[in-house]
Design a protein around this nucleic acid. Sequence first.
DNA 1: CAATTCAATTGCATTTTGCAAGTAACAATG
DNA 2: CATTGTTACTTGCAAAATGCAATTGAATTG
Lengths: 137, 137
Amino acid sequence: MPANQPNSRSDCPISFGLDLFGDKWTLLILRDLLLRGKSKFGEFLGSEERIASNILADRLARLESSGLITKAEDESDRRQSLYRATKKGTDLLPVLVELAYWGASHDPKTGAPKEFVKAYRLDRSGLLKRLKNEIKA
Amino acid sequence: MPANQPNSRSDCPISFGLDLFGDKWTLLILRDLLLRGKSKFGEFLGSEERIASNILADRLARLESSGLITKAEDESDRRQSLYRATKKGTDLLPVLVELAYWGASHDPKTGAPKEFVKAYRLDRSGLLKRLKNEIKA
DNA sequence: CAATTCAATTGCATTTTGCAAGTAACAATG
DNA sequence: CATTGTTACTTGCAAAATGCAATTGAATTG
């Protein structure tokens, strides 16, 4: 069972975010959702960081209860659920992009695509718009 | 004793960042360092989220060993050390700013200053420049 | 030199994580 | 329509991380 939301540690907006996704896994799920078009349990499980299924279930439940994602039935296969980011969730896209740019800049072994770094440097806000649009699609 | 760096989970740039600061505390220390001009153990301890001293010592050691901060002697009081962000550390400023903007936007009880939100909306890159400048000073 | 301050460290209980195995519901196959 | 496979979880348990309170030891202050 996922832990219920403990009261926040402070009214700092950074702390507010960390209370919801300050761990090693939650933002990776958002990454999969927002940047990789994934939406099913099995797809998240398949990501290269190899999250354990109990942790994944816990994080999805927390994300849902904190309003960052929604869970819906898959009409064509009732075993599966479809997870989607809410507005609150997609609003984290700029955070993910900055995180990715930072990582790409500071990890000598980064696997970040060169086009991403180039696009960021050339036109950050255009990149954000494009990524945001790709989510809807 | 702080844990030594485990090998990274993947070559994803987001995952790279989370391997270094994917927890509830590390980014708050960076916030104190980059946005609040703090530099001493006792100053970090005093922040409203109330980090425990053993956790703080652990995180400072990790931040140092991952090259995000440096530790220097305080000439005027040799009990104290002065922690400063490196280039790699200050490069996280945009991440902190996006995080803060997201939190300020989505926490109804946020304590984020209105001027911050206004400045972000009006001129994000100007805000970043200003904050970056304030760090050096 | 005694008291205080500061940055940690220690011991210990609690919580979280991670792994492997299991289960229940549904779907696909023959 | 029975069996086999798939999918999304759940469970049990060991290991690691966290959090708290108390303590240490060096440096400063009075």
